[in-house]
Design a protein around this nucleic acid. Structure first.
Length: 291
DNA sequence: CTCCAGGCGCCTT
DNA sequence: AAGGCGCATGGA
């Protein structure tokens, strides 16, 4: 194993209620890999390795850091989890999900990477989304400075770079019918037709409307970007897993239509509905699935 | 082999 | 408004 301490930079962050593995592995981000040194990822072109410890997370980077605001924001280290969980409805399904996923957090990811990744997510399993994103970064991303002994890494390619790609180049990354969607959205973002960094200043509804103007972005993908990239904790992405969770946990004895489940989701989970959604999603994928 | 995967856009009623 | 279908690709 490489001596990370003798290279780059290192910083310890005290945390409570933070399950790093569950958070990085819960289908909200697609570029984290567990190595013997810890969780290795790229955040805005910066290589970082994260090690969970008792009541702290230790971060190693390949380059000296002027400040760590980028990581504090990405990991949402200043968010206290307990007051959020306390707003969830007090009922058996939600209690079970919270108990099974203690310490599960939401990340605040770079908006473009989040948007592009979720455009690639439709009708794909998480393992395959990771493969496509990895190929996209290898093919179009700028090389990143990596500590000695670690695998080469690449930044997530900018919208401007992807806007210059051809559809067939994108298809070489195995994204299939999603290629024209990603290309179309990259072009719109690159030319400034949609300003991703302004979304967080809008209302949830207006920001969602903006995102849904983009090709390949419907309600579900828009809500993922709002929740995982823009900080709208009330956005509630409804996918096949969440539909299954709502149906089986809340209406086990009667068949409920998807649009009725959608309405239930919109009205039932409170101001941090997005957190509740992530708990249900992860609970369903890890433990409850084995029913 | 068949079936399905953190959906969307377009086409029918 | 609401429901059905095709779209690439690969793993179970």
């Amino acid at each position: 194993m490489s001596s990370l301490g003798s290279f780059g930079d290192r910083r310890e962050f005290p945390v409570r209620d933070y399950d790093l593995a569950a958070t990085l592995n819960s289908g909200q981000a697609f570029r984290w890999n567990q190595s013997s040194a810890g969780w290795v990822g790229i955040i805005q072109g910066t290589w970082v390795c994260l090690r969970p410890g008792p009541r702290r997370i230790t971060a190693f980077t390949s380059k000296r850091q002027r400040d760590w605001a980028w990581l504090i924001s990405y990991l949402q280290l200043e968010v206290e989890l307990a007051p959020i969980v306390d707003t969830f409805p007090d009922e058996p399904p939600m209690r079970a999900a919270v108990q099974a996923c203690r310490g599960l957090r939401l990340l605040r990811q770079p908006v473009w990477e989040c948007l592009a990744s979720f455009i690639l997510s439709s009708t794909k399993q998480i393992a395959q989304i990771r493969q496509i994103v990895s190929a996209l970064c290898r093919t179009f991303g700028e090389p990143v400075v990596v500590p000695p002994g670690f695998a080469p890494e690449f930044a997530f390619p900018s919208a401007e770079r992807l806007a210059l790609a051809s559809e067939s180049e994108l298809r070489h990354c195995k994204m299939g019918f999603r290629a024209p969607y990603l290309l179309g959205t990259a072009r719109e973002v690159a030319c400034g037709s949609v300003d991703l960094n302004r979304l967080a200043t809008l209302s949830l509804e207006n920001a969602r409307e903006e995102l849904m103007r983009l090709p390949g972005v419907g309600r579900k993908i828009a809500d993922c970007v709002l929740l995982f990239g823009c900080g709208f904790a009330g956005a509630f992405p409804v996918d096949v897993w969440v539909l299954k969770a709502l149906q089986s946990l809340y209406f086990p004895r009667c068949r409920v239509l998807p649009r009725e489940l959608r309405h239930f989701a919109d009205t039932h989970f409170g101001p941090f509905a997005g957190y509740a959604q992530q708990y249900l999603f992860h609970y369903m994928r890890t433990t409850a699935m084995k029913v």
